[in-house]
Design a protein around this nucleic acid. Structure first.
Lengths: 337, 337
DNA sequence: AAACTAAGGGAAACCGTTTTAGGAGGGGAA
DNA sequence: TTCCCCTCCTAAAACGGTTTCCCTTAGTTT
């Protein structure tokens, strides 16, 4: 039999109500009593039973992170881990715990259950799994939520995201500064909101330089190493060869670099390459990759803070970009020494 | 006001006890009653309140995964995500949820709290964060647990791990088969249990071939790309040059390959390279890496099943290796076509 | 027909907290 | 002195299920 609040009350010669108040603060209790209770708690090594607590308080003290742990996708999203890390830290700091849910392909039922069961106080979604249907569902229940990343359809959901357009702009600007003019873009399919946002930013940078992104230099495919390779080959075979390539993400970039190397295209002299998000291996590709990096850990952290805010004040509404992208210049865009 | 079990009971014209029994099964209830109750539940869109359930049942229905989400370390452990994925799936299948806990540097208090608070029914630890102190703590509380990976000190904890020695053996065997004889090993520090286990296996393979691992060809350092690079350089500068290098993990391998390339050492003709764990980028290094791969997803899955077993039968004791390593041969050990 | 058994169902206890409503006691104001 | 107000504390009622224990009923044995 574990020690309960009653044992503490008895030992401290007071009522359970008083003990509870001492634990939770926010009530006026005389200093003497507080001391007595504290001593009793210490003596009995008492810790409140969390299950009873969340039952009585009508709040679980936990937040769900709904994302995809899909085997292959997870590999494509090393970021997920860092986001989760930031999220967990933000929550733990306030005594909340993080429950990870894998949202298999369109399985809204799992999320509905989560809200119905009241097993968590709030939900953080990864934009990658957000569908219109799911969005409706969350709004209908008026459940505290935050989406990390921008949903790729209009919605009234609360979200926070990195500034992807700005990232794209920075990438293109950098290339322009190194004297490149014929920029190509290798991105995901149209539904890939991140890729599109970055492209948008890149286009903006060109426009501001009174240049234009050539439509035939914009390629779209799956976000895989293989497709990055193929799209690059297609670009090389085209009539207008670019003098720089912006890759929407690291997988495409890996494929791209590989294709350039195989075809013995000098990087960056003939074609420079820039991509997004710094990874350990960005430094050891041949040549090392220039990237526009964003702080995903911080993104998770902010999301954590926001969901806690939302839980406190459910009416809170926000849609925002956070964390500024930062350019890390490596050999894929600058001459080797 | 949410709908409760009472509402259902009233509508189905029965008692809450009966409704509860219908929900949980395992009691004899007439078919007619079951139907009536089910209908009422459906009509009211009733879902049991999970907080109340875990309070009444004295079981939270969740399992903690205690690991390190440390910013840098997480990058070094892309595996963590896959393990987590397998774990989550195994748990979800049985209606359990996964709580992720970051165990900051030796913070046993967090784990003790977890057990004291009874906020989870069992704990899965990642071996990387296992200390003697923590081990004692868990054993003292007799708390259901599973350690993924082998603790690097003797302990009575329950654990499951990949067969790292066998992986090492396979790696070395493969090199021997391709005609290599002077094997070098680039690994983590002595306390890196995984690295040591793989080395042990590699040594065994050599022994069986009546060869010996030369001590001066065994290097130890941090598991970073940089140290992999440096250790390889040291090997190249040594008097006895190896004709093959076994790298304890992918970071070391990346550094190693890089160093060989920089020094224009032909791979695999002069020196072959083999490492462990397949990553997307294993395919696109120059040359692509031969790896001995293990199924970490499955590891997580098995750990999930085991912790559920332990929760049911706390006396269960096991320490075991699972999942067989598999060799994936690429150009870093075979001649290019 | 009586006695026994098994199955179905309900009343009430229980799980360990929090929270509410109210009581006791002391101090200050009228 | 009386009244009021504050402070500190407590008894008891939630919170929403599960589980135990017992009662009823119908079927089976003897």
């Amino acid at each position: 039999m574990a020690t309960t609040i009653k044992d503490v009350a008895k030992l401290a010669n007071t009522s359970t109500a008083t003990v509870s108040k001492v634990i939770n603060g926010s009530y006026s209790i005389s200093e003497a009593t507080v001391k007595r209770v504290r001593a009793a708690m210490r003596e009995l090594k008492y810790t409140p039973n969390r299950r009873a607590q969340s039952f009585a308080k009508q709040a679980s003290g936990s937040v769900a992170f709904v994302t995809t742990l899909e085997r292959d996708v997870a590999f494509q999203n090393p970021h997920m881990f860092e986001i989760m890390s930031g999220l967990q830290h933000a929550l733990a700091r306030k005594g909340y715990s993080l429950v990870v849910i894998d949202m298999a392909e369109g399985n809204c039922a799992a999320v509905e259950e989560l809200m119905l069961q009241k097993s968590v106080d709030g939900i953080v979604f990864h934009a990658a799994i957000m569908t219109r249907e799911l969005s409706q569902l969350v709004l209908r229940y008026e459940f505290p939520h935050v989406v990390i990343g921008t949903p790729n359809f209009p919605s009234k959901l609360c979200w926070i995201d990195n500034n992807n357009p700005l990232s794209g702009e920075l990438a293109a600007l950098h290339l322009l500064e190194t004297g490149k003019r014929l920029l190509a873009y290798i991105g995901g399919k149209e539904m890939d909101a991140i890729s599109e946002a970055r492209l948008k930013g890149a286009k903006l940078a060109m426009q501001e330089a009174r240049l234009k992104f050539r439509d035939d230099l914009i390629m779209r495919g799956e976000s895989t190493i293989d497709d990055g390779f193929d799209m690059t080959k297609t670009l090389l075979a085209g009539q207008t060869k670019p003098d720089a390539i912006v890759c929407a993400n690291n997988r495409l970039a890996l494929g791209c670099i590989n294709a350039l190397n195989v075809n013995k295209v000098p990087i960056p002299d003939a074609i420079a390459v820039v991509t997004f998000d710094d990874y350990p291996f960005s430094r050891i590709t041949n040549p090392p990759l220039t990237v526009v990096n964003i702080d995903v850990y911080d993104l998770g952290m902010q999301a954590g803070k926001m969901i806690l805010d939302k839980i406190k004040k459910p009416k809170l509404q926000f849609q925002t970009y956070i964390t500024l992208p930062k350019l890390i210049i490596r050999e894929s865009t600058k001459k080797r020494q």
